[in-house]
């Protein structure tokens, strides 16, 4: 169906976008849960620094984030070189780099949603679980995470939608390579730069809008379903 409407290159950009976003959100999710737990539950030295670090991508221009990634993980940077030489992991000019950039830039969305959900949980429930013999990990797994599930899901879907639209960090870090790092926004940008590409750009813009709206609707729906399932 899509073939009649979009070109192969455009479908490729769509598929790549979905893959990059899925990996970005999936890999970042456990870290986001961890960061949200630390920020909502614990008082520790360096908490303010962690809070600031988590929120940094929200306030820094994405291009700056992309540049910082490039200078730390580029093949000539010490860390990037080491990863390449030791594990053969190379982010630059690769879709995994795009996923990394998207994951980092959308990290704050996940952390904020999860943290709100965690803070909404009545701490008295945890006390009750404790008197019933549940230790800390037991309570986390069987009480806290299930109760925070609506927030976790909402955060993940929001981050997914936002990462579909990530442009600056990706193009700065991993460039604009068709089939490898040219996600939807980059494809739109390329189409606009190409003489006669307006029609292609318009199609991709429409697609982006539909995806974004679908993502938002899905987030609401999923959160509603989970809330219903949890009976909260």
């Amino acid at each position: 169906m899509l073939h009649g409407w979009l070109s192969d290159a455009e479908i490729e950009a769509l598929a790549l976008s979905l893959r990059v976003s899925l990996v970005a959100v999936g890999v970042a999710l456990p870290f986001a849960v961890g960061a949200a737990l630390l920020l909502s539950r614990r008082r520790f030295p360096g908490r303010g620094v962690l809070d600031a670090l988590v929120h940094l991508p929200l306030i820094l221009p994405p291009v700056v984030m992309g540049y910082l990634l490039l200078v730390t993980l580029g093949t000539r940077a010490p860390l990037g070189h080491w990863l390449d030489a030791t594990f053969g992991i190379r982010f630059v000019f690769s879709w995994t780099g795009a996923a990394l950039a998207a994951g980092i830039v959308t990290f704050p969305f996940q952390v904020r949603a999860i943290r709100l959900a965690l803070e909404a949980i009545d701490p008295k429930l945890s006390e009750a679980a404790e008197t019933l013999g549940a230790g800390p990990l037991d309570r986390l797994w069987n009480l806290t995470l299930p109760l925070a599930a609506p927030g976790i899901i909402a955060g993940a879907i929001t981050a997914f939608a936002a990462s579909l639209g990530e442009f600056g960090a990706i193009i700065t870090f991993v460039s604009n390579i068709p089939g490898e790092t040219r996600t939807l926004p980059l494809a739109i940008y390329s189409a606009i730069q190409t003489p006669g590409g307006e029609a292609a750009a318009a199609r991709l813009v429409a697609l982006s809008i539909v995806l974004a709206l679908a993502g938002l609707a899905l987030a609401e729906y999923a959160a509603w379903r989970v809330r219903k399932m949890l009976g909260t």
Binding site: E127, A129, E130, A134
Partner: peptide
């Protein structure tokens, strides 16, 4: 607290909202 084996009934019940009554009863 978890090792004391003391039953505590709170003023506001504090049932786990995501679990059925049966699962609440089984929790401890």
């Amino acid at each position: 607290a978890r090792a004391r084996r003391i039953g505590y009934v709170f003023q506001e019940a504090r049932l786990f909202p995501h679990l059925s009554v049966a699962a609440n009863l089984d929790f401890g």
